[in-house]
Amino acid sequence: MRRLELVGWITVAVVLSGLAVPWFLWGSSTVVADLPLWLWWHIGWMGLAAIVFHLFAQRAWGIGIETESTDSSDEHGPDRSPRSASGGERP
């Protein structure tokens, strides 16, 4: 379960990186609302990235790093509850 989630997030990271440059607009000089269209894509994409990063921080922070529930050899315990929000905080 957790491993599948990890693969999902890695895919998201790759897609976010891969389309940060709008390759499909290569050579295009279309101007929309006073700026090149590809610059609008950049602005939108960075906004999207910020939202995705925020969701990651809320839902999956610690995945692949913290060991209690991310030990990859431990695939048999899908019912483990997520760590409490304070996990990792200094007391």
Binding site: H42, M46, G47, A49, A50, F53, F56, A57
Partner: peptide, 10 residues
């Protein structure tokens, strides 16, 4: 701070 990086860049 993680989610703020792309915003700061723009």
């Amino acid at each position: 701070s993680f989610a703020l990086w792309p915003i700061l860049c723009v």
